[in-house]
Amino acid sequence: MGAITLEAISKSFGPVEVIRDVTLEIPEGELCVVVGPSGSGKSTLLRLIAGLDRPTRGRVLIDGADVTARPAADRGLAMVFQSYALYPHMTVRQNLAFGLENSRMARAEIARRIDEAARMLEIDGLLERRPGQLSGGQRQRVAIGRAIVREPVAFLLDEPLSNLDAELRGAMRAEIAALHRRLGRTMIHVTHDQIEAMTLADRIVVLRDGRVEQVDAPLDLFNRPANRFVAGFIGAPSMNFLTLPVPGPGGAVTLGVRPQHLRLVERGLTVRVEAAENLGAETLVHGTTVTGERLTALLPGQLRPRAGERLVLGHDPADEHRFDTDGRRVG
């Protein structure tokens, strides 16, 4: 239960096409992370799956059944909103019970589900509080709890960690991963944070301007980006792109090297240092090549290169990525 298929989905708001011909299969039980820059259509895609918006073209299937015309409530899905969307005038218990009461569920069953979810999320001591009396992390748990009590076939999470501070975000990331393992349900998680995507996902969907750029496992995405956009978007710091002096095999015109794969060598690319950031275990060096192209290198150790100093950098050919004039990977 919980396999989700999108068949050639498009969505337009007036003349603006936000989602363009997206086809995607998310198998049962997978944690799929949709990632992309602002305005790429991530949240719209999630809302189309949820049933909060209707696609202009295409179909949404859940477990093989066409649910495109079905209301949100009848799709068996639960959504965790970016703002948590907790009812501020209700206690945590009332928030958790609200959706279940709509379906006229027996009180004993509602109480059982709430107690179980509260224990699982360790919010059993907060049930009589209101959202305004909770911290950001606690609200986040309540929002997840509200989704859990519905026992949906799949969870939709719309940037659920974006309102948390860095430390709490890390902790909640681990909890979402643990929750996914425990519940074994399909989860579609939307984020703009690539670290969140890399650490959580079974598979990552990279979106740009409403189009799917690549769908792959996190490390495959990192190691073999399908195009220049994905190569630049996945990985921090971003990949360096250098213009090849002569086109390479397959029409390659751009060479991509990740900052982590550069090292100090005796013979190689000469780079003039513009600035260096010491991160403790590593040093992030920003510089320009002799042809004036910008380049970033993440070098091990605590180096102290001065601005204007010249470094000679090299890399293993196995770590190279090559792209053609259209930005497509060619090697």
Partner: peptide, 27 residues
């Protein structure tokens, strides 16, 4: 009143009258 609250209610299949009575009116 944040739109998210109404969308959360929509996901829960809340009928319009209940949305008005339990969400709109108290807020």
């Amino acid at each position: 009143i944040p739109k998210d609250l109404y969308e959360a209610a929509e996901m829960d299949g809340t009928r319009p009258w209940r949305v008005f009575r339990r969400i709109t009116l108290p807020l």
